[in-house]
Structure formats: C-alpha cells, structure tokens
Design a protein around this nucleic acid. Structure first.
Lengths: 121, 121
DNA sequence: CTGAATCCGAATCGATACTG
DNA sequence: CAGTATCGATTCGGATTCAG
C-alpha cells in the first residue's frame, strides 16, 4: 500500500541516510552477486568489471558495517577471506534484483533518451 | 528467473552505467515522489528535506536526460515549471517503491548494525 | 591472496549570492 | 518561482606501493 504524503514526510528524514548506504552503484552489484553465493575478494573483483581494489574494499566495509554482509577470515595459508550475505542483506535480494533486471531491460531506452536529449541541446 | 553467472557477466558492462544514473539517493526519492503526481520545482524541494537547489536541479536534469522525467514550462507570470514522470520512468515505480519500503522497514536494523560495528572498532 | 596506505587530479557538494 | 553563477570544501577515482 502506498504511503500518504504525510507518512512519507514523517519517515523521510530517516530514509535518506539509508538510501545513501544501499543506493550505490557498487553496493547494488556486490549485494546482488553475494546473494548467489559467498564469494572471495578476488572473485568479486573479477565479476565487478573495472572496480578498483580501493572501491571494492570500501564498498564491502560499508556493507559489513551496515550488517548486510559478513566477512569471514579462514586462517590458512594462503589466507582466504569470504564475504557472504547476511539474513538482513538477504531481505534486499528481491528489491535489488528488480532494479538489476530493470537496468538490463531498459539499458537501450536510456541510451536513446540520452542521445535525443543531447541532440536537442 | 535468476541469471546464470555467464549471463550476468555479459550484461554487466552495460548495466553499470545504468545503475549509476538511477541508483542515486536523490534520484530515487524524486522519482518516487513524481510517481504520485506531477510536481513543481519548489514542491519537490520542500518534500526533499535538505536538498539544495543545485542538487535538485542536477538530479532533475539527469532524469530528464535519461527520459525518466518530463519538464513542462508554463509561460505565465509567475512562471511555472512542472515535472512529471514519463512512461519509461513509470516502469521504475515498483522497483523503487520496493527499495523505499525496505529503507523504511529496516532503518532501525541498519542503525543498530552500525552501532555494533563501531563499538567493535 | 587480501588487503592497507598514500598521493593526486577530477568530480561532486554545500552554501551563498544573484537573475528573469 | 525557478533557476544560474560562483567558490571553497569534501569526496571520489585511479594508480602505485607496501605488507601480513
């Protein structure tokens, strides 16, 4: 059920910081991929074409801090670090997958719209 | 139906720039609000507590460029500018509302997780 | 293998002032 | 009302280097 304007007005102050944490280009991709199965650092890095170590590290830290991702260190040699989705993170699976699917489906629409807009300007 | 790893690998290069356009804290809120009804600049600004004119202008421009929002100027005095959701933008309503609802529901969970993480560190 | 630390230029942000 | 212009501050992105 949609919110009334008043309800949205009330909840907004707290919603904005939440969106800042999860509405992030890398965070969405990382969470989506981790929903499939736990993955190691370099496995994630390979999937996230073009991400730098720095950006991936920062993204994983933020997600861990927010309780969406768990970091597990396997004390072996060589050391292995596995990132997995938490139950809380799992609750984001459907919303994020919906967004991911939309991006796949409407990729071309955005490109066309951009071209039209740029041509007018 | 979920994607196989290979399918995701194929589509990723094009998906990332799309997410950069819509996975943005203000963009999500603006689109969500415009899905209710067309709104004027200052009406949006009031709803988006704390946003600056600059950020709102930039967000609306980007959304307009991507064909998600339409900008209509009413030549009157005082001048009136109405922003409305486009059919393409409307296809984002459900995914974004799901994200918005998640943010409302799990606001407290994130705050607690952050407190726990910060206490450990 | 999995990061942390640093550096640097670019991009973005926020606040303020001004305009048709 | 709906912006534009400006400017300093903060952040971001990428590259490089080092370490457990």
């Amino acid at each position: 059920m949609p919110y009334t304007e008043d309800q949205v007005l009330e909840t907004l102050p707290g919603v904005r910081p939440v969106l800042e944490q999860i509405a992030h280009k890398w965070a969405i991709l990382v969470l989506t991929f981790l929903c499939e199965e736990p993955k190691r650092f370099n496995a994630l890095k390979r999937r996230l074409d073009g991400i730098t170590q720095k950006a991936l590290t920062e993204t994983l830290r933020r997600l861990e801090r927010n309780g969406l991702v768990e970091r597990t260190v396997t004390v072996a040699s060589p050391i292995a670090v596995v990132y997995s989705i938490t139950p809380l993170g799992r609750t984001l699976q459907d919303p994020l997958l919906a967004l991911y699917d939309w991006a796949v489906d409407h990729q071309g629409d955005l490109t066309e719209a951009q071209a039209r807009f740029d041509a007018r300007s």
